[in-house]
Nucleic acid binder design. Structure first.
Lengths: 187, 187
DNA sequence: GTCTATAAATGGATAGAC
DNA sequence: GTCTATCCATTTATAGAC
């Protein structure tokens, strides 16, 4: 019955579903069956909660990518990123929290922005490594630098998650498949 | 001094910068130098304003793509879409309104959602046609169907706009360049 | 840790005068 | 068309009892 933990879990869900600006202490209160004041006891301010949610999400992503790193095959490692993309941390109409936060970029507090820039850079660097290794071994193909290609793929996935929420999971899956098809050699 | 027009212009800017949920009549009031009540005179509700903004944006996009259609070369036509992506309708830290709205998808009123689904479908169909023609002429290369590739590229651009807002315009330009490099034949 | 009660600010919206 | 004045709901946040 770790309340702080509960708040973070439900908070992350609401953050992903509604965005930072549009979820409230009242929502959390209702979902958890405790008052808003009690939530304030665990997180003095919404900003503090926002930062905690950011850190938690960072951990989850990092862990998933690290597990993927145990594979040797670049394509198998890439699946780790797919797992991040598909609500590995939730289902339904969530989007990647990184996308939810980036959309609210002009609205979120400074302290959150820096956290998210870190996370995004971490993910892009990770993808770039997989791409570089994949190309080196002749398993993947793309023009230019792995870094730029990784940045592009990251953007695609963020956009796809938002598109998928409105148009259904099948569309999201189709886009992810297309990304991989574009990476395959001997097109 | 068409007030309705002014409200739409500033409203679109705020929608793109902050998202639907996070812009208010108070913001508009301050920017336009008239009271909230006056704005209500032109748009009875925020929902009505939201729909008007959606329609206006739709017009702008459609017009830009139609102009692009006057070119014969698929790559030149593709530039029309680039113009939509790069704040052709504004500068600075705006993102594509379609992205701003898709992020707020769970928050916006039904009436807006249908408008945006239409717009997005229109854009994707347009891209698909360009891609199909480009491939037919041997000027572009990609796996699978033009429709899926178009859906993917649309997602990429949406994601890239959000990424670019946080990380700078150069990054956005780099991603767009990468998208085109991926489309070029004889990779 | 959780509650009640309440504050202070902001949200969208309306009535009615000018 | 624009204003003042006001309404009611919601938001983040605090004080203090249990």
């Amino acid at each position: 019955m770790d309340r702080k933990e509960q708040i973070i879990e439900v908070g992350l869900e609401l953050l992903q579903k509604r965005g930072y600006a549009s979820f409230s202490y009242a929502d959390l209160s209702e979902r958890l069956g405790i008052t808003k004041a009690s939530i304030h006891h665990h997180f003095r301010s919404k900003e503090a909660l926002g930062v905690a949610l950011s850190e938690r999400y960072f951990e989850l992503v990092r862990q998933t990518l690290r597990e993927a790193d145990e594979h040797d095959d670049p394509w198998e490692r890439f699946e780790g990123y797919e797992r991040v993309v598909f609500g590995a941390f939730g289902s339904g109409d969530r989007i990647c929290a990184a996308g939810a936060v980036q959309s609210d970029y002009n609205v979120i507090p400074e302290s959150m922005r820096t956290k998210w820039c870190e996370l995004i850079q971490y993910v892009i660097d990770w993808i770039a490594q997989v791409l570089q290794e994949g190309r080196r071994r002749g398993l993947m193909q793309f023009p230019g630098s792995p870094e730029t290609q990784a940045m592009m793929i990251f953007s695609t996935m963020q956009g796809a998650l938002q598109y998928g929420r409105a148009h259904g999971r099948e569309e999201l899956e189709a886009i992810v498949r297309q990304v991989k098809d574009n990476l395959r050699p001997a097109a």
